[in-house]
Design a protein around this nucleic acid. Structure first.
Lengths: 199, 199, 199, 199
DNA sequence: CATGAATGAGTATTCATTCAT
DNA sequence: CATGAATGAATACTCATTCAT
């Protein structure tokens, strides 16, 4: 990769980071291209060399952030001695919930913009410096375990949607209860869904 | 209610309906006050006699539409001979899913804007021409049945969030599968959650 | 006509005049909407209440100015005792050439933007405060005179195009000669064309 | 001419051709330097090695295209056995009208940008691969014929302007009539102008 | 109450031009 | 010579909000 190419990569990363900071602090609608450019220390025109418009940037950013979250969870899993597929699932979900509790702005950003399609493709994206991808890993674990899961993708979908939408309410809005209070119910819910697909 | 009062009600309703049509067709961001006014056949200034701004209107509209959905489901339930609390729950959810499948734009609108807080209060709002309110009914049914539910609100929350977020993906985006394909899994999921809270 | 309506007419006229001044002094391309608005003493947004964009304004302005020129020439003709249709034609053309020589910026503006279609319709437009229209008058004079003209519109077209394009070069660019020097040739040319269509 | 020199000539020609295509299809105002560069397969910076700016290119292009037109007409004349100066003039004009009818975009481009000054100098420019120049030829023919023309340049000017401006209307806009219908009148007009200057 | 003309701050987007490679 | 990434000034156009009628 030539010098120029590296430089371009850096600029794009700078823009993404600046945009994320602004989107999460001022909100997407109130963030202007000018804001993003000046926050990045780049000229306004430069923005358009990397993204078509604000929406284009948002889409790329959402997928990137969601993927990153799973990559981190996955990395943590590999460092820990959790046994059994269900426990691994719970570990991942707990990790993610913890992370979102600590960074509610990330949660707010992801929740508003993520759909299963974007999410699914983000998980399968090859992440630089992370050869293992979560989705691939998930599927292979499923097969290797003695567990017979009838619809592994639907199971993951159901769990992720349940976790995502309840996190949004409990963590960000504390509605109807805080995540602390809801978490045991959520874990039990995940367990029941797991049983349903694998029994 | 005087003539003037009725007139005002009508104008407000006209504005709400026009806004709903525009929001669902052009999107919220691309709909202007001008659009709403001219679609209503009213002057721009008139808008401000009824709503503070576009966001104010959206909030009122969201609660109104979500509530209406449950009110209709509830009314349908009263007309049908479904027995048993769980079956009534399933009936309600099925009714709502059917409705959202037929009117995906309503789904898109609600999904983007509804949080549990708004939803919860919408369900408890006194609805004109509907003395019975869904939330009240739900709670009273819970008590009257022999079923002991430990956390009725959390159960409803869990079910509604699961239904809502999976509907969004399966109906609107057909991701990861169509609602037709997902529905048996969703119903079974609801059943499991029900069991979890009432066993 | 109500107060509001009169006010609107005035604003439109103000914008047209401001635009004409700017177009002829700075050129069309270098004139901005902002310029036009501030020159008019109106807000930028107001411009868009009256014209779609700069091009829309230009079209209306071109037709208006061309028409005005003929209206003036025509008014002068009515005040003078010129006899015979051909002499009247020459009077009109002389009047217009004189006028354009005195106001070369008007010439520059009209010449660049006028086509026969725009011109033709401008001449037939009912001009406020000028019931007689040039084109109508021209046609009726043609019929009333003993002269038999085979193609009156083509004759007018030919003369107007010849006058227009040579004026542009001789008056504005002094190329290949000044209008003073070219004028006798041009008058003779008009005479010959007249003969050709009426002999 | 060295290899490098040839290379430069080619690049300039490529840029001119690309610009002509774009100017005639998108219009001058909407064509950007970027467009011209990418259409040429060259880099944006390269443009500035050959032209000062878009206007510089346009001027060169206009003269080039107008000159080319006459060069072609002239070449065709040399291949045909037309006798008599007036007939040669008519041949040239007919050739040009035919050509413009087939390539209306060329007409639109030339008409918008050509003035007699540019035109005159373009005709006198030494054309590569064409030792004979139109203007020179025109003047020498004039002298050699027995015809006494009082103002040969004014005659050419008058005819060219008349042809040019009527072509624009009749060919491009079909106003007030098509060129097919106008052509006999135009030829007769040219004849009359010819007579006027030479009788 | 209702209107809609007027406002002008706010923003996205373009594009000629430069210059380090 | 040629490149094309970066720049940032320039501008068109929108739209929420006000207020005189």
């Amino acid at each position: 990769m030539g010098k120029v190419e590296v430089n371009k990569q850096q600029k794009q990363a700078t823009l993404l980071q600046a945009a994320f900071d602004l989107f999460t602090n001022k909100g997407f609608a109130k963030t202007t291209i000018s804001d993003i450019a000046s926050q990045s220390g780049l000229a306004k025109g430069t923005f358009y060399l990397y993204f078509k418009d604000k929406y284009d940037l948002r889409n790329k950013l959402t997928a990137h952030k969601a993927s990153q979250l799973f990559v981190e969870a996955h990395a943590a899993l590999l460092r820990s001695p959790v046994d059994g597929f269900e426990n691994q699932m719970l570990f991942i979900m707990d990790y993610i919930i913890d992370r979102l509790e600590k960074e509610p702005k990330l949660l707010a950003f992801i929740a508003k913009n993520l759909s299963w399609g974007v999410f699914r493709s983000a998980l399968a994206q090859p992440v630089p410096e992370e050869s293992q991808q979560f989705y691939e890993y998930y599927m292979s674990q499923m097969e290797q375990s003695n567990i017979h899961c009838r619809e592994p993708e639907l199971m993951l979908f159901t769990i992720v949607e349940l976790v995502g939408s309840t996190c949004y309410n409990c963590i960000l809005l504390k509605q109807p209860v805080s995540m602390e209070e809801y978490r045991p119910w959520l874990r039990e819910g995940i367990h029941r869904i797991f049983m349903m697909y694998t029994q």
